[in-house]
């Protein structure tokens, strides 16, 4: 299993992610792109709620001064543009650098922001992963099964709160025999990170 550096004080690179469930997923992505275990410290913020206050608290001046690069990866959720704008504004204020989605500042420290969406306007990490998996022609058959299952449940009056989380959960409950979430799924090699849908995220993480 991919892991990450455990001592945030010693790490020169820090990747901030939304939740503890995201941590193993991004650790697997970093391993996939060939980064060693101790390459970066991954800090989960335990949810997107109050994420700006969390960033203001976490990224104190001495912490910023001690790091070479800090990446922030968050879900777009209801609005990609709104999330980009609020995070860019907050990170600009905290770091005094011009932070833009998908880019890295010159630093020091280098600051990067990546807002994950499925279709460029809404969604979350599960949306991106589902889109990449479902667009693979090899998965056309199983994709119909998952969609049929969700549509059937919907027809019974049980609509998934987050459809893409529901799709990933249904998929992984069969293809991965553990916790049906992104991290264990990635560890079981269910997802193909070479798919073009992942390229922007992978490119971003390579530059951490």
């Amino acid at each position: 299993m991919a892991n990450h550096m455990h001592d945030e004080n010693k790490a020169s690179r820090v990747l901030i992610v939304e939740g503890k469930g995201d941590l193993p997923f991004y650790a697997e992505v970093l391993e996939w792109i060939g980064r060693p275990i101790d390459w970066a410290f991954i800090k989960p913020m335990n949810g997107k709620r109050d994420v700006i206050a969390k960033l203001e608290t976490y990224l104190r001046p001495d912490f910023l001064a001690a790091k070479a690069s800090i990446g922030v990866v968050v879900d777009a959720d209801e609005t990609f543009s709104g999330t980009c704008k609020s995070l860019e504004t907050a990170l600009n204020k905290i770091t005094k650098q011009d932070v833009r989605h998908g880019q890295w500042t010159a630093g020091p420290p280098r600051i990067g922001l990546f807002v994950v969406s499925g279709d460029g306007s809404t969604g979350e990490a599960e949306s991106l992963v589902w889109r990449a998996w479902a667009n693979d022609p090899e998965n056309a058959g199983p994709r119909r099964c998952v969609e049929t299952y969700l549509a059937c449940m919907d027809g019974q009056g049980h609509r998934a709160k987050s459809p893409d989380k529901g799709r990933i959960g249904a998929l992984l409950s069969v293809l991965s025999d553990e916790d049906p979430r992104l991290g264990p799924g990635a560890r079981d090699r269910v997802f193909d990170f070479s798919r073009p849908e992942f390229h922007p995220l992978i490119d971003f993480l390579r530059r951490l």
Binding site: N46, G47, D50, A53, K54, E56, T57, P61, D62, A65
Partner: peptide, 23 residues
């Protein structure tokens, strides 16, 4: 905290204390 050789600091209000505890 220390910024290089210099001591520095800040005041955290309820919002930021709660954020620190939650995260």
């Amino acid at each position: 905290y220390r910024l290089g050789d210099v001591a520095d600091g800040r005041t955290l209000d309820r919002k930021h204390i709660e954020a620190a505890i939650a995260a």
